[in-house]
Design a protein around this nucleic acid. Structure first.
Lengths: 169, 169
DNA sequence: ATGGGCATGTAAATCGTTACATGATTCT
DNA sequence: AGAATCATGTAACGATTTACATGCCCAT
């Protein structure tokens, strides 16, 4: 359900295409949530039907026109009401952690491999975040970036501890 | 899909009822994933049909018999194969963070209220984790507990910074 | 010419929650 | 007496992913 408000919220900053929304979420909001076209486009269509957004066809040289969506007054109203509701509890599914928890019969070697892969992925994400940190212009974006960085660093520390306990070094 | 392996994994430690699985997830695995009866029971039925688990009716005084599930050799095999696969990416939906990100037109007072609520919730969770830490007996449980604690503490620090920036003292 | 980015969509299938239904027991 | 815990389940609905389908532009 919150994809609806994600879209509304991003459109309240500036008009965008569905493609733009996707890119934005992937680049700056991957710590917060994720969104696929299969959800995004139908949700945009629905918002349009209901009058929460409006659309403008923008011609392009060589390419077919793109659909730039903009939030309406009604949309802003709905967004604002949602923002005042208490947020739903975070939903998480950490499969790596689940496997670690359940992996009591897995050979130590494979456990170590899992941890190494995770460390590499976390390191990569950390590098990404360091680059993106500069893109954050308003304090809200900054806060979310800070959060993402903190979580990533905490996980890195934890992974190092884990490696020590697994006799890797 | 990983509910299937969650169940298999917990049953590989000891036989349990569906109710036990639910409790266990809620108490020790809430940082990892969550599970509702509406998912758990049908998944158990399916695992039974497919021969990955077996069931035994255990009579009780005064209450109707309970169904204690146990993993089969086939189930162990399937679990082990899954554990060796690379884990799927973490899935997250942090609605609080999403609201914070989108709340640029929200009055400062309401923002502050959001942050205070979050801080209270995080503090409560931290207390819970401190209590539960003693229950962890094998290193795998310990690792997951450590992870949960680290993340919680990191969020607490971040919240304090946030409060400072919002002029709350 | 090959791959990546721009751009929009749909359909099927699955995944998962919520709410409902039931009922005994034990703790406060 | 009333609330919490033990215990099992289903049905309806809603949410989401995956895979497919299409096609042009630009850089290497």
């Amino acid at each position: 359900m919150s994809h609806r408000y994600l879209i509304l919220g991003l459109l309240s900053e500036r008009p965008m295409t569905g493609y733009d929304v996707k890119k934005r979420v992937k680049e700056s909001l991957s710590t917060v949530m994720n969104a696929s076209y299969g959800t995004l486009y139908p949700t945009l269509h629905r918002l349009l039907e209901e009058g929460a957004v409006e659309v403008r066809q923008v011609p392009q040289k060589g390419r077919p026109a793109k659909k730039v969506y903009n939030i309406t007054r009604m949309g802003r109203q709905e967004l604002s009401e949602w923002l005042r509701q208490p947020p739903a509890a975070d939903q998480i599914r950490r499969e790596f952690l689940l496997k670690l928890y359940l992996a009591k019969d897995l050979p130590k070697q494979e456990l170590q491999a899992m941890v190494i892969n995770r460390r590499d992925e976390t390191a990569a994400q950390l590098r990404l975040l360091d680059v993106e940190r500069d893109d954050a212009h308003n304090p809200h974006q900054q806060w979310v970036m800070d959060y993402a960085l903190l979580i990533c660093r905490a996980e890195m520390d934890w992974l190092k501890q884990l490696e020590a306990q697994l006799g890797m070094g």
